[in-house]
Design a protein around this nucleic acid. Sequence first.
DNA 1: GCGACAG
DNA 2: ATCTTGTCGC
Length: 318
Amino acid sequence: MPEIDVYACFYDLVRQIPRGRVSTYGALARALGDVRAARAAGEMLAENPDPKRIPCHRVVRSDGTLGGFTHPEGLKEKIRRLREEGVEVRNGRIVDFESVVFEDFRTSYPLRALREEQLSLRSLVKLEDRPFDVVVGVDVAYAGRDAFGVGVAMNLRGKVLEIHVVRKRVSIPYIPTYLAFREEPVVRGIIEHFGKDAVYMLDGNGVLHPYRMGLATCVGVKNRVATIGVAKSLLCGTVKDGVVYLEGEPVGVEMRGRGKPIYVSPGHLITLKTAAEITLKLRKYRVPEPTRLAHLEAKAFRERELRRRPQWSTHPAF
DNA sequence: GCGACAG
DNA sequence: ATCTTGTCGC
């Protein structure tokens, strides 16, 4: 299945906003297929790769106030461009907002297709143990759309066996509940190196997800590997006696230590019990060692690469 | 000001 | 997640 390029879809939507009109972060998100993408809309506008053809100055907040503008001149330039097109701005608000707002997008709602994919993958999830003796912790650092993924292979006694790094350009921004579509292609590169016999420990959730298809589960099902999800905050569900429940079913455990808890859930080809045991066994600090080390390595990898090719860093679009 | 949704 | 100086607390 080809990866949907949500960035490209989004910029196509922005280009549909006519001169002299404005639209909103939320309206663009709904045109993508889910209002949860409203913040991601703002991020994608801030990274506008082609301001000449993509009129990001025509996107404002749903209450008619201006929102932000990534430009050396700041908001002043957004106002200047809007006025130049005949859009009146007074006291930081669009005048007669209701009559200039544009929402009539031509769209195929790409996020709906992704949601459907989550629902269809759900029937393939298997939460049964398989034997293993290596755990690969995975984490990803970003510089704009460039992802730097790291896998740290470890035996069950916590000894580091090998570290592998991959680099990839992502095709979707971070949108809550769609994280897997952003990161799974990066993780796939790490699985291609370490193979399918290890258990992969990922930074995010497994079945602890509104559609039971968090990053770890998605990675597991698509690549036929065992996975564990370790999240640093609760995405959904209710905690009772250290167990996270979703629709009455146990989907994860809350692990408390010194500070904020972490949330462990099985991804694929593992039970909740084993996922929790492995995590506990490899935990020295708050985040278990495989993931913690992968996080450190990913950040270091990104810094090395940005030093070598500084133009990769996210620059103002103008 | 409140609510807030992994990374 | 990233942007980022000094500051607060265990």
